[in-house]
Nucleic acid binder design. Sequence first.
DNA 1: GGTTCAATAATTGGCGCCAAAATGTTTGCA
DNA 2: TGCAAACATTTTGGCGCCAATTATTGAACC
Lengths: 221, 221
Amino acid sequence: MTVKTASTPERLVDVMARDIQAGVFTPGTWLKQIDLENRYGATRMDVRRALDQLALKRLVRHVPNRGYHVHALDGRQANDIRDVRIILETAAAENMVGNVNDADLDDLRRLAARFDELILTGTILEQYDANIAFHVRLLKLCSNQELVNIVMELRGRGPSAPATQWKTRARIEQSGREHFMMIDALAARDAVALRRVLAAHIRQSGLEEASVIQPLERKSG
Amino acid sequence: MTVKTASTPERLVDVMARDIQAGVFTPGTWLKQIDLENRYGATRMDVRRALDQLALKRLVRHVPNRGYHVHALDGRQANDIRDVRIILETAAAENMVGNVNDADLDDLRRLAARFDELILTGTILEQYDANIAFHVRLLKLCSNQELVNIVMELRGRGPSAPATQWKTRARIEQSGREHFMMIDALAARDAVALRRVLAAHIRQSGLEEASVIQPLERKSG
DNA sequence: GGTTCAATAATTGGCGCCAAAATGTTTGCA
DNA sequence: TGCAAACATTTTGGCGCCAATTATTGAACC
């Protein structure tokens, strides 16, 4: 009863990470190794290796002699991750504006349009994938590959699961609009505008709440 | 013939990572599993697990059926990592200035003084540890724990190995001075100055070359 | 004498089994 | 009937062995 087969065992971590992020396993769920090897058609050793790596990525938590369970990050961690993403992605904005060309813009318009289509017609998972595709393409404009890798990892760890992220139809439609606002800012080579849209998009709040560079929160007492 | 024993298998990755960063294994060296289990007194399974996690951290590279070898990052990666560190640590400067208190400053002065002592009397590894201790204490001033974690990881991955980092006595002495400059900036609650010193410290170059916020490099043609 | 090919030795990597621990269930007792 | 203790089942986790692949050595041939 294998739902998804990972062609290479190397990619099992990615498939599992995607399932966790997409909300297939809800936070707190205990991930039994037998279930996982059935579901993914993998050997026990591969499952254990993947679990270890997911624990290193903080996506799951390991309790000795009890197993692995999906890690639900508390509000503080979610806040911290979101702030780091804003720092990095807004820092990359200037670089992206400097690197973008017409072919990039065409690609991005196509991917943004596809996301908008799927708002109406697609499943949650399809929307998730289309959103990722857009953002990966966007990040590729940044010439700092390490920054891209870190942002991608944070995106996976943060509360970006569709289940928790796109709570309302209004919110997901707003995300679609923001995609086009990013493209417009890129086309205009307007780094400041791009930073504003990015920060707002990451905050998942209206533009009016977003400032370009916002100091981190103080230590909570 | 176990050189270092890892009390808990959980920490084997950390010990190995530290050895790689400290230059015990030079880049390119093939890490034979048998040698590793002898050196660290670990089982083969633990060694393999640690190797996998180090590969995930990009500290070693895996070649199927040939083994793992220490990964030497090219100049571009080193650049990218350094730039990300500058972005994150300078972004944290304001937060650190806002959080610091007198007890923190005392700790930092003590650790900075210890580093300076070890410049004269200590081994390279002792200097390495003292330097890490100072920077860990400094980073603890930042209330964003995720940012701290990422910076620590980058610090491990970057070209921060003593062998490559502190090429000259002049350079390591300059590092010691910069530690105190950071403390002075913190004591004065001067975030701008702290950013300048941090950026220069990470760049390992004189202050005159460092700007507060420097745009990332363009895509190289 | 140099090159190629084959046999040997060494190393990696996967697979499975079995012990230890924990959870859930049943049974006995007050 | 409620609680507690012992048993059975499930699940994790470690350990070792053996096959597959690669490096190395030696020999034969050109």
